[in-house]
Computed example of a mutant assay.
Amino acid sequence: MILRRALILSLLALAACGSPGSPPPAPPGVLFPAAFGDSDPVSFKGRTPAAYPVHGIDVARFQNDIDWNTARRAGVNFAFIKATEGGDLKDINFDSHWQGAGQAAVKRGAYHFYYFCTPPEDQARWFIRNVPKTGGMLPPVLDMEWNPFSPTCAHVRPPAADVRDQMRRWLRVVEAHYGQRPIIYTTPKFYRENDLGRFRGYDFWLRTTAKTPAETYPGQTWRFWQYSATGIVPGIDGDVDLNAFSGSRADWQNWLATHALP
C-alpha cells in the first residue's frame, strides 16, 4: 500500500489537537480513502489492494487504546473485532473496541477463533453470549485456521470432512441467532487442506499477504481480503491487519443493505 505521508502526518496532527485529543466523529455513511502505511510492504502483481476503494482493519487484544475517530478518517471504514476463542475465552479488548468503533460510526463485526477441542455448539453459544445483537453490525465471522500455540489443542487436527461438519454446525447455530449468514475467514494452508471451496453461499474473508486472492485461491470468490499484517494506521499504535472489500463504493453500500443487521 502506498504510504501517503502528507495525509498521514496531517491526520496525526489532527489527533493531537483539541480535547480529549481526537477529532470529532465523522458523519455516518461517509467513506474515507485509505491513508495507510505498511512497515513491511509487498509489491503485489495483478489487481493490488490499492485498486479497491473500501478498506478496513481487524483488531484484537494486541491493539490498545485505539483512537477510532482518527482511524476512521484515515480510511478505516470497517473493522472486524475479535470476540471469542473456543468455548470459554473472551478477548480482553472486545468490549472497548466494540464500543469505540460504534461511537466512531465504523462498520463493525465480531469474529470467533475456532478450537477443535470444544464442540461447535458450545463455541457458538459462547460467541452468542458475548456478542450483542447490534443494529448495523456486520455478519459474524468464523475464523478457521490451524492453531499452533494452544497448549491443549495445537495438535488436534481432524480430517477435512470432520472439519467441515464442525464448521456447518457452528454456522447454523450462529446464523439462527443473528439472522445473518456468517462470513468464513481462512488462511491458504487451512483452505487447501480442508477443501473449503466446497462451501457454497457463504462470503469468504481470505488471508493472503504475499499474493493476490486470485493467485492464492484460484477460482474462489471472496468478499474481504486481508492483505497485510503490518499495516500502519493513524490512531493505532503498532502494526495492524489491513483489509479490502471486493467491490466498488456502490457495491459496499448494496452489500451493507442486504447483510448488515437492521
Rank of each mutant, 00 (worst) to 15 (best):
A244F: 00
T230F: 09
E145D: 06
D203Q: 09
Y217E: 07
R129D: 14
T216F: 10
T134V: 03
L89C: 12
N64Q: 13
I92F: 11
A161D: 15
Y115N: 13
N194H: 06
A34H: 01
G136C: 07
V240I: 13
D237I: 09
D58S: 04
K211S: 15
D251I: 01
S43Q: 15
G109H: 04
D91L: 08
Q123E: 11
I236G: 01
D65C: 07
Q99N: 05
W252P: 04
T48S: 12
I66D: 05
G201V: 11
T216L: 05
T216Y: 06
S22M: 02
V163K: 01
R207W: 12
Q166H: 09
C117M: 11
G18H: 06
W252V: 07
N93W: 04
R5T: 14
A250T: 08
P49Y: 02
G135P: 12
A244W: 03
F94I: 08
I128Q: 12
F127E: 07
R157I: 11
W98L: 14
Q220E: 15
A6K: 14
M144F: 12
G247W: 02
W126S: 07
W68S: 07
C153T: 06
P119S: 15
R73F: 03
H259A: 12
G135M: 08
R73H: 06
F245M: 08
R207Q: 15
R200N: 14
F204N: 03
F78K: 01
V174W: 12
Y227W: 10
L261Y: 14
A83L: 03
H112A: 09
S39W: 08
C153F: 00
L9C: 07
G136F: 03
P120I: 14
P27C: 07
T212S: 13
Y191D: 04
A176F: 05
W98G: 08
A79P: 00
R129F: 10
A50W: 04
L242H: 10
R168C: 02
F190N: 02
E145A: 10
E145F: 09
